[in-house]
Amino acid sequence: MARPQDTRPEVVASATDLEQVARTLAEKLFGPAGPAWGTTFEDLEELVVQVGRTVSRELLRQALQKQAAGPVPADRQPCPGCQQSTPPTDPEPRILATRVGDAEWNEPAADCSRCRRTFFPSVGESGD
């Protein structure tokens, strides 16, 4: 049996849009008549899980990339070690393992000449 999960308010507010996306995907995947008779539940489930993961990875990638492309908040600009002001450097590729697969984006980076370290302003010290 599926376990109940709390649904975030953003998901509830987007329910109509998400239903339309699902309707569009279902028609694209199965055609206007739906899945062919004889298609097993297992095959349908596997397909929708793969589609869900693909959509989830892409949505996560786009959200992370847009967040990273925005201005770095002032409280994240100093070096987390010595608090010296640091100039931004070229963004660096980041990859994180998530529940839906690897998330990849270009993360803003900064170099501290005093500590001689590169850091990602979006990530605080350990424990943040």
Results as ranks from 00 to 15, higher is better:
residue 42 E to N: 07
residue 42 E to C: 00
residue 43 D to L: 11
residue 44 L to K: 14
residue 44 L to V: 07
residue 44 L to T: 07
residue 44 L to I: 08
residue 44 L to C: 10
residue 45 E to M: 12
residue 49 V to L: 13
residue 49 V to F: 15
residue 49 V to H: 12
residue 50 Q to V: 14
residue 50 Q to S: 12
residue 51 V to L: 09
residue 52 G to V: 08
residue 53 R to M: 13
residue 53 R to H: 14
residue 53 R to A: 12
residue 54 T to M: 02
residue 55 V to T: 11
residue 56 S to T: 13
residue 56 S to K: 08
residue 56 S to V: 01
residue 57 R to D: 04
residue 58 E to F: 03
residue 58 E to V: 04
residue 59 L to A: 13
residue 60 L to W: 09
residue 62 Q to Y: 12
residue 64 L to K: 04
residue 65 Q to R: 02
residue 65 Q to I: 01
residue 66 K to R: 12
residue 67 Q to N: 10
residue 69 A to W: 04
residue 69 A to V: 11
residue 73 P to S: 04
residue 73 P to V: 03
residue 75 D to E: 14
residue 75 D to T: 08
residue 75 D to S: 05
residue 76 R to G: 02
residue 77 Q to G: 00
residue 77 Q to K: 08
residue 78 P to E: 08
residue 78 P to F: 15
residue 79 C to I: 10
residue 80 P to L: 05
residue 80 P to K: 04
residue 80 P to D: 09
residue 84 Q to L: 01
residue 84 Q to F: 06
residue 84 Q to T: 12
residue 87 P to T: 10
residue 89 T to F: 01
residue 89 T to L: 02
residue 89 T to D: 12
residue 91 P to V: 05
residue 92 E to T: 12
residue 92 E to S: 05
residue 93 P to W: 02
residue 94 R to A: 07
residue 95 I to R: 12
residue 96 L to N: 12
residue 96 L to C: 00
residue 98 T to K: 10
residue 98 T to I: 03
residue 99 R to M: 11
residue 102 D to L: 11
residue 102 D to H: 13
